[in-house]
């Protein structure tokens, strides 16, 4: 089951560059929250703060409070534990090229010491691949073919399967479709609807139609600030901020 995320006064820096200013918002459990905004507005930085991936970059740091369920992830817990509960799918598919499709999905399970038995491992991998709508395409070859041999869209679903396999509570998606063709994009969007039953989803997207299609809530970022956060239909039909209106009607961005 998913858990909600509560963000309070989140600030993030790259060295001296102040990339996020006092962001506060709530992402509901088992809902999809979309983050939109022009390039460089801090939306990727924002979701990378939600599983402490931001600090992987040298000289990057963040302050404020982010609660995943009841746990404040910046206080009294480790980044490793946080990422175990908050999975992430990246902009460009990044399967492990030196592993088979099967091993790609099993990688996270092995890392976290889940399913030591061979049979359980196979079951969990199958469940993850089915969950990512990839099972039928790879079931015969998954132990022979490398993860990098799949098509772009399949690779991205493989990455989703890899993330799902460790059963996180939240899945972050950083523009998961921007490197994919429309058909693959459609498949991933369908997938997001199913994933919501099990996980809380936060998705960064450049594509406003996509946000409108998949997300219950939408946040609009501009220059490192959260300008507007509301129900998706409200943001797209009756935005309360002029800048949001300008952006969604294509007047800038």
């Amino acid at each position: 089951m998913g858990v909600g995320i509560t963000v309070e006064n989140l600030n993030a820096w790259f060295g001296k560059h102040h990339a996020l200013h006092d962001v506060s918002m709530i992402a509901d459990a088992n809902k999809c929250t979309a983050i939109i905004g022009p390039s460089g507005c801090g939306k990727s930085t924002f979701i990378r703060c939600l599983n402490r991936m931001h600090e992987v970059i040298p000289e990057a740091r963040a302050t404020g409070s982010v609660r995943v369920g009841e746990v404040d992830i910046y206080n009294g817990t480790s980044a490793v534990q946080v990422r175990r509960r908050v999975g992430m799918v990246f902009q460009r598919p990044n399967p492990f090229p030196s592993m088979t499709v099967f091993d790609n999905v099993a990688a996270g399970l092995k890392l976290n010491g889940i399913a030591p038995g061979k049979k359980e491992l196979e079951e969990l991998v199958e469940r993850a691949l089915r969950g990512a709508a990839l099972w039928d395409e790879v079931k015969d070859t998954m132990k022979k073919k490398s993860g990098a041999s799949l098509s772009g869209g399949q690779q991205q679903r493989l990455c989703i399967a890899r993330t799902m396999a460790v059963e996180p509570e939240v899945v972050l998606m950083d523009e998961p479709c921007s490197a994919l063709d429309p058909i693959s994009t459609g498949k991933i969007e369908e997938l997001i609807f199913q994933l919501k039953e099990k996980f809380t989803i936060v998705i960064v997207t450049h594509n406003m139609q996509q946000a409108a299609r998949v997300a219950e809530f939408t946040g609009f970022f501009l220059m490192g600030r959260l300008i507007e956060f509301d129900r998706t239909e409200k943001v797209f039909t009756k935005p309360s901020d002029k800048r949001t209106e300008d952006y969604i009607t294509g007047r800038f961005g």
């Binding site: 991936m53 990422r83 175990r84 999975g87 990246f90 990688a107 890392l111 890899r162 993330t163």
Partner: peptide, 8 residues
Amino acid sequence: EAVYALGA
């Protein structure tokens, strides 16, 4: 990052 995101 892919490995980190799995909780490594």
